[in-house]
């Protein structure tokens, strides 16, 4: 076990962590942050996407012990925050979710795309979403939601 200090959704904690525990399992099983979902556990589906020091990462292929001193944000940490509330609303309005299992990871990725591409084209959104699997929607609603959320966020800045 390795004592690890990290910040999760703004709260700094220090906890003994088994080295083999993935960040996803740590969040879900030790911190009860179950909004981060596991769809494949080998970095290929994107359901477990969280933010690590402001970057999107797959929490199933991150060791929790390697997060010493780092800042983690999960979907739970984005409640009542801009711009995620805007993105959430567009996901709702564009029917960007069906079963909802991919949704938290999709939202984390969507926010990252909009941050890096304030005016994302259809093809940019598609290629940036590669590796985020949604089995239900066929992606149409997700792409439309990211496009329109980006526009609203852009307009608010201007």
């Amino acid at each position: 076990m390795t004592v690890t200090h990290l910040t999760i959704n703004g709260e700094t904690i220090s906890q003994d962590i088994n080295p083999r525990e993935s960040l996803a399992d740590f969040l879900r099983e030790r911190r009860n942050l179950t909004g981060t979902h596991l769809g494949c556990e080998h970095g290929a589906c994107g359901a477990c996407t969280v933010s690590l020091d402001g970057m999107v990462v797959r929490s199933c292929v991150v060791l929790a012990v390697m997060c010493e001193g780092r800042k983690i944000e999960t979907i739970e940490g984005t409640r009542k925050s801009e711009p995620m509330d805007v993105i959430r609303r567009h996901f709702h309005e564009k029917h960007a979710l069906q079963c909802g299992f991919c949704t938290p990871g999709m939202l984390m990725m969507a926010r990252d795309i909009i941050a890096r591409y304030p005016e994302p084209s259809d093809s940019v959104i598609r290629s940036q979403l590669s590796g985020q699997i949604c089995r239900c929607t066929g992606y149409a609603g997700i792409i439309a939601a990211i496009e329109s959320a980006a526009r609203e966020i852009r307009d608010a800045v201007e």
Binding site: G43, G46, T49, L52, M55, V56, V57, R58, V61, V62, M109, D112, Q128, S130, G131, Q132
Partner: peptide, 8 residues
């Protein structure tokens, strides 16, 4: 791969 993989 994918952006989230490329970040690490």
């Amino acid at each position: 791969a994918y952006r989230a993989i490329r970040n690490l």
